[in-house]
Design a protein around this nucleic acid. Structure first.
Lengths: 139, 139
DNA sequence: ATAAAAGTCTATTAGATGAGTAGACAATAA
DNA sequence: TTATTGTCTACTCATCTAATAGACTTTTAT
């Protein structure tokens, strides 16, 4: 299951996608709209900034904005940043690989199934982008 | 990511599948072969017994055995028992449904994507059974 | 009978992780 | 030059995970 943090991140990005190229959005505005604890949201947005998904502006006219076009940001990418591996086992993870420590079998039968499952999810999450979770415009 | 418990469960079931219809296997034997802490494994096997996947026998000739044919037990079923929901969001879970508590959007764009992802994993985990993760026979 | 061998069950612990909070600090526009 | 906004580090609290302890029940072999 995705963490609360990941859910918040996706919700915030949905809003920021709707506001793409319309100037920065205040953290407080996102927090209000999406009912996210503001200090928690700060951490999340900062993390997404460090990952070059978002850019920010300080001072009176400050706020957060998408750094790149919504269509260029895959959902798999976001989930990896705020939630970690997508695979069900670290030994089949593409981005967070780690060998199993108690894997005693020379021919592990679980591994290939989980690799297949990973590919199945990635097929969805790699083709979906922020554009797909964009908030409806309210105008 | 699957919990350690879930990994242990799958490993144990791989062995018990190889021993299907060959009489009960001792907890201690499974623990040794798979390098699983025995007391932890006890809990896991008991849980699988309560879920009617395994049957057990007490006393001198006791042990654990699969209760049903390996082909009839889907991996999705096992994972739900020992690891919980397969979906990434509880609001798209088939077996553990729970509404999001901070869902403010009338038309949530995240939900349908996660439902699609859930279907993609289930397509794999529903068609794979214990027979697919059976340990190689040593004879 | 009875002792040894097995699973059963409840409770507990230690450590890790998740969710959220606090507060000092830095940059910027009016 | 001050109010406003994001930055950053650290901390707390609760829950979950992994593993352990130990008393109990059942069963078989002798």
């Amino acid at each position: 299951m995705l963490s609360q943090k990941a859910k918040y991140a996706l919700q915030a990005l949905g809003l920021l996608t709707a506001r793409y190229e319309k100037g920065p959005v205040l953290i407080s505005e996102i927090a209000d709209h999406k009912k996210i604890p503001i200090k928690f949201l700060e951490n999340i947005l900062l993390e997404l900034k460090h990952a070059d998904i978002l850019e920010s502006f300080r001072g009176r006219t400050g706020g957060y904005a998408l750094k790149v076009a919504p269509k260029t940001v895959k959902l798999s990418q976001i989930i990896r940043i705020v939630n970690g591996p997508i695979a069900m086992l670290s030994c089949v993870s593409l981005n967070f690989y780690k060998a199993c420590d108690n894997c005693t079998e020379d021919s592990c039968k679980i591994n290939p199934v989980m690799a297949e499952a990973r590919d199945a999810v990635l097929k969805i999450l790699d083709k979906r982008t922020l554009a797909d979770i964009r908030d409806v415009d309210v105008d």
